[in-house]
C-alpha cells in the first residue's frame, strides 16, 4: 500500500486532515516534573551508578589515579588468562589513555581489522560516552573506531570511564545527543551483562552478549 493512502486513512478516522500538525500537548512531554527536578552531587551520582550497576550483575572498580587504574586493568587481564583482547580503535573517544596496556596485550583494534574477527575475542575493552546513575547504564555510540561489536560480541566487556561522565538520568543523555549535528546510527544503552530467565525462570547470564561487564572508573572530585 502506498504511504499517502495509509496515512490518510489514519487521519480520516481520527477526524483529522493529513498535514495538520499534532494538537498542542496539554501535559508536558517526558518525565514527571519531580523526576526532572532532582539533583545529585557528582559523588552521589557515582555512588548511585555503582549501586545500580552492580545490583544488575555488573562489576565496578574505582581508582583515584590513572596509574592505579591501568595497573589494575593489567592485573585483571593476567588473572583472566586472556588469549585475545579486542578494543576500540586508537582514534576512538577514550576517556582515559590506556594505549600502553592495549599494546602490551596486543589488542585487536576495531578500525584495523574486520568485525568478524571480534567474534573470537574473549575480552572487549572500550570507553563509553556517558553513564546513567538512575539505572546503572553505560551509553555507547557507534562510530568509525567505536564498533558496536567491541562491547557486544566478547564474553567479557571491560569499560573505562571517568566519574564525571556519569549523569543522573536518561533524559540528560538524550539532550546531549540531540545537541549533536546528527544522531549516531546506533546508540546502545547497556545496563549489565546479557541475561535471560527463559529456562524455568532461572537467571542465566551471557546468553548472547557478555557474561561479565566490568567498569574501571577513574574517580575525580
Amino acid at each position: 500500500m502506498d504511504k499517502n493512502h495509509f496515512l490518510e486513512n489514519i487521519a480520516q478516522r481520527l477526524g483529522r486532515s493529513l498535514g495538520q500538525p499534532p494538537h498542542i500537548r496539554k501535559e508536558m512531554a517526558g518525565v514527571p516534573e519531580f523526576w526532572a527536578e532532582r539533583s545529585l552531587t557528582p559523588r552521589e551520582c557515582l555512588e548511585k551508578w555503582i549501586e545500580n550497576f552492580t545490583s544488575q550483575g555488573g562489576e565496578a572498580k574505582r581508582f583515584d589515579s590513572k596509574q592505579d587504574l591501568t595497573e589494575s586493568l593489567d592485573c585483571l587481564l593476567t588473572e583472566l588468562s586472556v588469549q585475545s583482547v579486542g578494543a576500540w580503535g586508537k582514534t576512538a573517544a577514550w576517556p582515559i589513555d590506556i594505549e600502553n596496556i592495549l599494546d602490551k596485550w596486543k589488542a585487536l583494534r576495531w578500525d584495523e581489522t574486520w568485525p568478524e574477527k571480534f567474534s573470537h575475542v574473549q575480552v572487549g575493552i572500550t570507553g563509553c560516552f556517558w553513564a546513567i546513575a538512575d539505572t546503572g547504564t553505560l551509553v555507547m555510540k557507534s562510530g568509525k573506531a567505536e564498533g558496536r561489536g567491541t562491547h557486544l560480541m566478547p564474553q567479557v566487556h571491560i569499560v573505562i570511564l571517568r566519574s564525571r561522565q556519569i549523569c543522573l538520568r536518561l533524559g540528560e543523555v538524550f539532550s546531549a545527543l540531540q545537541q549533536e549535528a546528527m544522531l549516531p546510527a546506533a546508540v546502545h544503552f547497556v545496563s549489565g551483562p546479557s541475561r535471560s530467565s527463559d529456562i524455568e525462570n532461572d537467571l542465566s547470564i551471557g546468553v548472547h552478549g557478555p557474561a561479565r561487564v566490568i567498569a574501571f572508573i577513574l574517580q575525580e572530585d
Binding site: 545500580n52 545490583s55 544488575q56 576495531w110 578500525d111 574486520w114 568485525p115 539505572t135 546503572g136 547504564t137 557507534s142 562510530g143 568509525k144 564498533g147 558496536r148 561489536g149 546528527m182 544522531l183 549516531p184 546510527a185 546506533a186 546508540v187 546502545h188 544503552f189 547497556v190 545496563s191 549489565g192 551483562p193 546479557s194 541475561r195 530467565s197 552478549g209
Partner: peptide, 24 residues
C-alpha cells in the same frame, strides 16, 4: 514487564550504518 529497574539492552537505531562505521 519483569520488575527490572532497567532493561539490559536498550538500543536506538537511526538509519543504517554510516559510511565510516565498520559494523551495522
Amino acid at each position: 514487564a519483569t520488575g527490572q529497574n532497567v532493561i539490559t539492552y536498550m538500543s536506538m537505531l537511526t538509519g543504517p550504518k554510516r559510511s565510516a562505521d565498520r559494523d551495522g
